[in-house]
Amino acid sequence: MRLLSGGVTLAAVLLAGAASADPDPTATLIVNDQIEIATRAPAPDHLKDVFDTVQSGWLYRTEETRALQMDDFDNPAMVFVDLGLEQWDGVDGSEGKSCASCHQGIDSMKGVRASMPKVNPAGNDLWSLENFINACRTQRMGAEEWKWNSDPMKQMTAAISLQSRGMASTIRIDGAAEPYWEQGREIYYTRYGQLELSCANCHEQNAGKMIRADHLSQGQINGFPTYRLKDSGIVSIHGRFVGCIRDTRGEPFKPGSPEFRALELYVASRGMTLPIEGLSVRH
């Protein structure tokens, strides 16, 4: 982001307050000239006292970065989707099965990403997509579990997430999910690290402003997994959380930890009126 737009944003902030600052009020996300994905939506009820509108991180990126997400031939994340599709059909483990043996085509995963994270079948834990994948690998395939941020895991979550592209979120934040949601909210407002900064300090109080070279978005996760140009690779939701807490001179929770799964649910709920972008491109 250029300094210039920082200045423009500052003016907007002074006039309108941080919450409504918007880098590009006209940009529209249309993928492959066909699929229109809303990048602005009314805030969910539980967030109404904070934001009128929730906005995708896509809106806060430069025009060049935004363009990469508008065509699957340009979107570098699609290479990882292809690798994920190979994994889907690949036999692994003592049972001699692939994902396809039971689930057939990957399109059977339609809507799955949009429902995550959710309470597990046993009803005693909150699971992210990664947990469901590993449960099938270890309990149904006799295969080893994949590490949370390993290449095969990120390829698989990429391929599965694409099946929910453009779909509305179906997460539950009440009933059995509520205690996890409460825990996640608590984490969101805790000021971590030696810099004592909470997620809210940056992504709620200062969304739309510049922090050094970065244009602060609302920190939504509807676009994950993300292809990050800086890393030339896929970044998982928990991978991003790790980076953000590390930047507070803090000690992040571990990817896959109960804390990050609860935080994932809460952050997902802050953007639950935005469709799943699967797979976004960020710088």
Binding site: T190, G193, E196, V242, R246, D247, R249, G250, E251
Partner: peptide, 11 residues
């Protein structure tokens, strides 16, 4: 501090 780190190492 809550979960202070060793600089920006994440440790």
């Amino acid at each position: 501090h809550v979960r202070p780190g060793d600089g920006f190492t994440g440790n």
